[in-house]
């Protein structure tokens, strides 16, 4: 399991004086310092910066501006759709990689990591080449009346590509851990393949699927490089929130950038909290 239950964590802390492993003090201290330097201090600097302005000012810059508002909508909707698409196809991909043996399996497994390894700008340029009206797919799709590059679908495609490994890599170990005996038991009790999947397999895989979705979605919210090239960055239409921050910075509007940053920070935090609660609820039902 990826996450340790709260109770177990407490038990570990309480039992620390009995631990055979030394160095609890120093390792915890290092961990806290590292987290502070790398994560918490930059984030609090952002909050401090944003708090430096009046509420009126903050509202004007981060909420009331229709162009900024539109960018939130684009970011959220594209990341959400990409996350959902990845949840379905990433699940199937992980299932195939774990359950079946076929030639080229290891190659396929390695390809899943490419979006991790590739600089996102490279992915963006590659996608533009493919989906622009002069590209292989773009010309054909435009003939069908579907504009992908420099439009909202292009953003979704870029975010889908970036988010795929998160879902596959969280699902794989969970699928490996499924006990084949439960499936056999279900079959002996008269369940069809479909019933076995729906009633026995899926409920156990929902928590890791939620984790995978959350990671892919969060990654999509923050993605900049690949989207920058394929989105076309049309105000009110295909500008994403991270791009708005860049635009504000280029105009030396540090407060505006920090305000948008704060909104995204709060939104991400709220979403992660929600997904964690959902996970805790499903995990409680399927804990071992």
């Amino acid at each position: 399991m990826i996450r340790i239950g709260l109770r177990e964590r407490c038990v570990r802390v309480i039992n620390r004086q009995h631990s055979v492993l030394p160095g609890f003090g120093i390792s915890l201290g290092l961990t806290l310092m590292y987290l502070g330097l790398v994560v918490l201090i930059p984030l609090s600097a952002l909050v401090v910066k944003a708090l430096g302005m009046t509420f009126e000012d903050f509202w004007q810059k981060a909420i009331a501006d229709p162009r900024v508002m539109a960018s939130y909508r684009v970011s959220l909707s594209a990341a959400l759709v990409a996350g959902l698409v990845n949840s379905v196809f990433g699940f199937i991909l992980a299932w195939v990689l774990v359950r079946y043996q076929f030639p080229g399996k290891r190659l396929l497994d390695a390809i899943v990591d490419l979006p991790f390894a590739l600089p996102t700008a490279v992915s963006g340029i590659a996608l533009v080449g493919l989906y622009a009206s002069s590209g292989w797919l773009g010309g054909w799709l435009e003939g069908l009346g579907l504009k992908v590059a420099f439009a909202w679908p292009g953003i979704v495609i870029a975010l889908t590509m970036i988010g795929l490994p998160f879902v596959v890599r969280t699902m794989q170990p969970a699928i490996e851990q499924l006990e084949s005996e439960s499936e056999e038991a279900a079959a002996i009790l008269g369940a069809t393949r479909g019933q076995t999947f729906r009633r026995v397999i899926l409920p156990i895989l929902v928590p890791p699927l939620l984790t995978g979705f959350a990671l892919a979605f969060a990654r999509g919210l923050g993605e900049f490089g690949s989207v920058y090239f394929i989105a076309g960055n049309l105000p009110m239409k295909t500008e994403i929130a991270p791009l708005m921050i860049l635009i504000k910075l280029e105009q030396y509007d540090y407060h505006g950038a920090a305000a948008i940053g704060l909104v995204m920070l709060v939104a991400s935090f709220a979403l992660l909290l929600l997904i964690n609660l959902l996970q805790a609820w499903t995990r409680h039902r399927s804990s071992t």
Partner: peptide, 8 residues
């Protein structure tokens, strides 16, 4: 042998 109960 290992029961194979549906744990959820």
């Amino acid at each position: 042998q290992h029961y194979a109960l549906f744990r959820h």
